[in-house]
């Protein structure tokens, strides 16, 4: 469960974001819509513990995200929040397997090759285990980042414009994949996008432009 209270964020006098109250139940999904510059990414970063809000609180379950110390918040994020970005940011110096092991290591979890293989298999990437990241196609890289986000069985998955650079077919595939994976892991999925194509696939929607 994600609960936001009296959230406010802005640069200087200019207010970017203001959310009095928002609640997403366990296992429910939320689509955050809005044109670019509407504060979608900012909200996602605040939810992910990457960016402290000026006012208000963000709670995930019993944890008040911004009452944790910096290092505690980093660790909490690594273990409970899976982040997916528009571009597939993988560590190109490492193999696919090492990218995922790194995610376990940095989150302070046990390094479990079995789990790595399991997640990659569920995304159809089992044969790419030892491949260098650069040897993968764009779509494969995107799927590896999804695998990475799911690896530590997060309670919340945050995806920022995951479909922006994909064609219609692949956009639907990715959304389906994210939804099914989130359901399998019993995680809440929050997607920020300006992509109208994915609109019909979510019941719960937050349109930032209308605030």
């Amino acid at each position: 469960m994600i609960i936001i209270n009296d959230l406010a964020f802005g640069y200087a006098s200019h207010k970017v974001l203001s959310i009095p109250q928002l609640q997403v139940e366990e296992g429910k999904h939320l689509l955050i819509l809005g044109a670019s510059g509407s504060g979608k990414t900012t909200l996602l970063h605040i939810l992910g513990g990457l960016l402290a809000p000026q006012e208000g609180t963000v709670r995930i379950g019993q944890t008040d995200l911004y009452r944790l110390s910096g290092a505690q918040r980093d660790k909490y994020r690594g273990q409970n929040i899976g982040l997916i970005f528009q571009k597939a940011h993988l560590i190109s110096a490492l193999s696919v397997q090492d990218n995922l092991l790194l995610a376990q290591y940095l989150a302070g979890m046990a390094q479990d090759r079995g789990r790595v293989k399991e997640v990659l298999t569920s995304l159809g990437l089992a044969d790419k285990l030892y491949k260098k990241v650069k040897a993968l196609s764009q779509g494969e890289q995107q799927r590896v980042t999804i695998a990475r986000a799911l690896l530590n069985r997060p309670r919340v998955i945050l995806a920022d414009e995951p479909t922006a650079s994909l064609d219609d077919t692949n956009a639907h595939k990715v959304i389906d994949l994210l939804k099914s994976q989130a359901e399998q892991n019993n995680a809440s999925l929050l997607i920020a996008t300006h992509d109208q194509r994915v609109k019909d696939q979510f019941e719960l929607q937050l349109n930032l432009a209308t605030l």
Partner: peptide
């Protein structure tokens, strides 16, 4: 820069 930011988002502390 992105690599470092990604590592932070994966749970790495600043000290790490």
């Amino acid at each position: 820069k992105y690599d470092l930011a990604i590592m932070r988002s994966l749970g790495a502390s600043k000290t790490k």
